[in-house]
Design a protein around this nucleic acid. Sequence first.
DNA 1: CGCGCAACCTGTCTGC
DNA 2: TGCAGACAGGTTGCGC
Length: 303
Amino acid sequence: MPELPEVETVARQLGPELEGREIERLEVLDERWSRPVPPERLAAAVSGRTIIGLGRRGKYLLLGLDGGQTLVMHLRMTGNLVLVEGEEKLDPSEGMRLYEGERSASERFMRARFELDDGRQVWFTDPRRFGEAFLIDDDQLPTRFAAIGVEPLSPDFTPEELGAQAQGRTAPLKSFLLDQARIAGVGNIYADEALFRARLHPLSPAGSMKPEHHLALRDAVVDALEAGLTHGGASIDDYRDGRGEKGEMQNEFLVHTREGEPCPACGGPIARIVVSGRSTYFCPSRQTRLRKRPRRRPSRRAT
DNA sequence: CGCGCAACCTGTCTGC
DNA sequence: TGCAGACAGGTTGCGC
């Protein structure tokens, strides 16, 4: 689920709500969440701390705490971070099957719970249990994220930077966009959407782009991510924002999950292929493959 | 070194 | 109805 627009949406919503609040108690219910640190140890380290703010780096959420430390969280595939005002009000995993005696599916999937000093709670829910969290000294953050690539919504994300990252890459453009070490925060949804906007074929080698393509792809990545932000993120299935609400971006997809539907630009059918294990949607007639060398004009036989 | 893929998990949906 | 298989927003480690 959560790619840059979804994580950013949560950070923007919850940041102002959490800033200045004290975490009276953190309860860690799943040892996988804090692994390899024992749940009770992470809980004890975070309990009693005051929140400075909530930020984002790539797809990571950064909960700044007093004392010069940050709780880094990653939602992975199905994680949600939701502010809960009344226990019964919100169900971040609404739509999931309820078993007997359960008030909400969220409770079953709760991995951690923050109790704030104003009586509200923040739940980290995650059915697939891929989500994780760790506490880190602030001065270690640059080192920890040194291998994460450029932030695509920052001024540093220029066509030249994108070109430098793509230089010499033989991997398909789809894989290139998913590589967090090059561009941070793009995932399966927005990679498809960006390639469609740039009219680039997902299987074209990243290194085959020319400067005009660097510019087109830079703009397309930015536009796709901003569309996601504008519509509050994409809720294909599990994603909920910081208030437990679905996003609307899934209704705005140009190609992602739209196999067989008409291309919004030409009307031809959207195709689905698998690229390095990920479902990939594109318009075969508009997203043409780049050639390593210009095709020779067919020579006419002299008559 | 770069790249593709299996593995990590749990749940839902589809087809036989 | 039951059941096997495919598939799901991400990341990591391993083999080639």
